[in-house]
Design a protein around this nucleic acid. Structure first.
Lengths: 214, 214
DNA sequence: GCTAGCGTGTTACTTGCGGTAACTTCAGTC
DNA sequence: GACTGAAGTTACCGCAAGTAACACGCTAGC
């Protein structure tokens, strides 16, 4: 049989693919999300058509690259979410993990979240062409599953968990994006503020004196 | 003096600009966010350089177009937020207003939120090139101001209001985006679920029996 | 040993975009 | 009637994604 042969080839192709992805990673980290296929190919020491043979099109390369980082990020988030501690502590730890990740590697973050920004003169996007920011969808979906598994939400818990999963992820994302751009406070303060929001402080706050209320 | 003259010209230029924007609007509504400058020019019955004279570059056209829709949306949101009712009711009305808007005109929504999706064969983005999704930033900032004005949040209220503003907008956006794609429930259900989240039901929920808690 | 395949790589090209330079045309002014 | 300046045109540049067609190297069968 040619199984060993095919396995051999498969292994070789996989290795090559990993090398290419690492090269692409370096370029994206250096040039931002506007990195061109030519630049990536050059970094990998080859030329464009090979990239296309491996990844189909730019979206394929984007997806493969995004999956690596997303998997890693989700792994840390799961760990934070699963730690043995009070719920509030774990929520804060999860928020902090996410924010620490985007703080530590903003270039990666920008690539994942704002694929079509373009640092060069032209703004050719690095979009997958299909879903909108798959990272967020995946995170939302995972969080939804987690919530539904762990929390007793009464009837309609499935829908509720999904809404909350996507909503919380969106909250985290938007606040993080804004924070990363303006750095108006420390990470710990941001985490605390967001957790306060999730803990219902919005509903509990009093009206401002003299104002028409809210 | 030439004031009247200049005013005359200014008026004419403004009218033309509005016409061009309306043409651009039609094209974006028809072709999605991937609309090309050529297509827009053709729809307006002219050629590219004129667009460039009026809007500088594609980002300028994007910004002008986005501003129109954003202004309109913000106006409705302000109205919902300012209505005379209980806080919870107003929050729900605001969420519902936003969701109704994106539901009614998904093409506009996609243009504003996912400018780089590309309906044609090529995925040239329609990005402004600078900030990420300015609509969300504006909404977050406005909501922050509103919260700070109306709510008594104690010390650090300024930071807190800003974090909450961006966080809530992000929550609304992400949940809305997901909902618009999958339509897993009615709008009213979604509104209720999100309001529940903001009202601290996450913190109040009990652990699921038999699970490790959350 | 020689040739048939197949995977890896190349050069050179097409298409389509954003953006611009240089020319033309036409309204109103002295 | 010549002059100015805005509106509009054609024709082009640069650059990116993506592709076709060709060239090398390796293993397999005769």
């Amino acid at each position: 049989m040619d199984t060993t042969q095919r396995t051999e080839q498969q292994r070789s192709a996989d290795r090559r693919r990993r090398e290419l992805l690492e090269a692409a990673d370096r370029v994206v980290l250096r040039d931002g999300p506007g990195a061109s296929m030519n630049a990536i190919a050059a970094e990998a020491g080859i030329t464009k058509p090979i990239l296309y043979r491996h990844f189909g099109d730019k979206g394929g390369l984007y997806a493969a690259l995004a999956k690596r980082h997303t998997d890693a990020l989700l792994e840390s988030l799961r760990a934070a979410l699963d730690a043995p501690a009070e719920r509030r502590e774990r929520v804060e730890a999860t928020l902090d993990t996410y924010l620490a990740a985007i703080e530590a590697r903003p270039q990666v973050y920008r690539f994942l979240m704002h694929p079509a920004e373009g640092g060069s003169q032209n703004d050719q996007g690095f979009d997958t062409g299909r879903h909108s920011i798959p990272v967020l969808r995946r995170m939302g979906e995972e969080l939804a599953v987690f919530i539904e598994e762990r929390l007793d939400l009464g009837p309609g818990s499935h829908q509720l968990a999904r809404v909350w999963g996507h909503g919380i992820v969106g909250m985290m994302h938007a606040a993080g994006d804004w924070w990363l751009g303006e750095r108006p406070c420390t990470r710990a303060e941001l985490v605390r503020s967001l957790a306060d929001l999730l803990w219902g402080r919005l509903a509990a706050a009093g009206d401002r004196v003299g104002g028409p209320g809210f």
